[in-house]
Design a protein around this nucleic acid. Structure first.
Lengths: 186, 186, 186, 186
DNA sequence: TATGAATGAGAATTCATTCAT
DNA sequence: AATGAATGAATTCTCATTCAT
């Protein structure tokens, strides 16, 4: 049983790496099976179709993004911390975000992929909305702040740095600074 | 000669549309040739290889982004206008940005695509840098503003809305508001 | 032991139905095992190979045709009754005859199937020969009657209606009428 | 153009022979292509799918059965001649009838095959009906004769001898004799 | 007896590309 | 410039069978 799980995991990992490296364009099953050390027909024992394997990769990826949202008192700090963690992750595990980008693009054509991704994104959106809403309520941010637009801005920005680990940190810092200008002295 | 040019254009357009619709994963030459009304082997008279056709699509796409930067006096207005134009384009010609996203992802694997895209992006980066630099010089923005990070933030944000035409406008507005808070009254 | 027998029977029945429905062209072991509620590899405990299972189906089919020849006095009546019974069977259990037809066709390629079927057919041929021989002896039919040819005619006709339950009855009646014209009046 | 036709013909012939020899159960495209001396992928240039090739085989087979019905004066002679020609064909070109039998069996599962075969059979049925009807009108046969049943009997008998070239002649003769008893001399 | 894992051979089909015409 | 024929390598997926448990 655990062996079965191991093989499956090995296949998912191999598929994940392959997508990270070559995208879906060149994504073929045989090399995946080979990387896991099994015959390519055995792969179908674990994943009936290519789509099933891709679905498993998607699940693997999204499972890595389980909410790491903190519950500090200060919403501004929470936002900053959250974005810094993302920036760190982009830097340390760039493949994760590359594959996510590939999946995002693929979601447009593949309904079920789209649904899974959308569900995941909605969870994230809700968390961000909570931060901004609380921030406005506590007068951390102006009551004029367009919460929905701010949330989408954050999301867009994060998506925009997924392929740019080198710039991730400075970009999220700059975004946080715009929301909550550091008043260093005084 | 002009006929030849027309045929090439027809092929490039067909390829562009196909990529916009199905991405590179499902990008096949035969349907492209069929869409242009020619035999699939004739396509090779115009583009020796598949890669050549893709390169032509890339060129077609980037040629659509020739800098439409205005030269108003006020840098803040220039920025806002520029981003609004982008948001409008994303809304009105979403395929253009979808294909750009596909190409961006592909650039990681394909050196020459990467170079072309990078060159293009650099032009854009320079223009944005000029705006922010001037804005700081003219005290539109604080001298503390991190110009480079601001430029990357703008770029990241725009990239992040490429697949979301519906949110494009509100996101860029929100970003501009953060840079230059509208102070409506007083 | 009886359990084992039951399982075997279940498998044979499932195989029989599958062949009746889709012929040998689409005959696969896995669905058979599934229909019998067992794993497809367990099937090999009961039938070592696919051919073994097919042989069992053949046996099952031929066992259904144990001579039900009557021993009335009148050969003509015997013939008519025999053919009517066949026509009824074709109507009521068409799958039996469909599978028989499939097996007949297959016999050409598969030696052992051929032998089994041939043996069965010979028994039938003998019974028919007995009827016609007796009929000629008793002057039910002309002494000019070609007994062997008549037997083959009957066999051919029956084979010819195996896929046509709807016409079975009228065809066998017509054949009997030709052999023994009903002289209803006078 | 004629070359193209030749290749197609060669493929159809090779397919025909393969089916005659091994039936549909073992019918694979690669050996067909090999027999025609081409790469197996080239086969798809001529027949997009396996089903297309089978359809061409079916057409080839049915085209061999274009009505060879004579227009002698005597219906009984016409019937006898017709059946003798069939018996001769079964003897001389047994594969034709074997393949026909295979197709007949296959027709049950494959709608389009079924339609084609049915259309062909209907033509034959019409011709036979004409013979019997005329025979009854001319008092060659009793007015009591069930024309429809007689037609079906002939059809069934012919189908029943398709796999038995050796018995074909004696069976059809016997059938004719039953319809029109030879009254030798006297 | 029963299973699930594994295999290897092979299935139809697709695709970019080349070549002769 | 244009075509259709041809290729060969590759693709996903299937299947009967075996083996260890």
């Amino acid at each position: 049983m655990t062996e079965r799980h191991d093989r499956r995991q090995a296949l998912v990992h191999a598929a994940f790496s392959a997508i990270a490296e070559s995208g879906f364009e060149g994504f073929r099953l045989r090399p995946i099976a080979a990387a896991a050390g099994i015959d390519h027909s055995t792969l179908h024992h674990y994943f009936r179709t290519k789509a099933d394997l891709i679905a498993a990769v998607l699940e693997h990826v999204t499972s890595q993004f389980e909410a790491t949202m903190h519950t500090d008192l200060d919403p501004a700090t929470r936002l900053r911390q959250h974005l810094r963690e993302i920036a760190t992750a982009v830097t340390q595990r760039p493949e994760l975000f590359i594959v996510l980008d590939e999946l995002d693009l693929r979601a447009r054509r593949d309904g079920s992929t789209g649904a899974d991704i959308e569900r995941d994104e909605q969870g994230w959106r809700d968390a961000l909305t909570a931060i901004f809403t609380e921030g406005v309520a506590r007068h951390v941010w102006s009551t004029d702040l367009d919460v929905a637009a701010s949330v989408e801005l954050v999301i867009a920005t994060v998506k925009g740095i997924r392929l740019r680990p080198d710039r991730a940190e400075s970009v999220v810092n700059q975004l946080c600074d715009l929301f909550s200008p550091e008043r260093p002295h005084a």
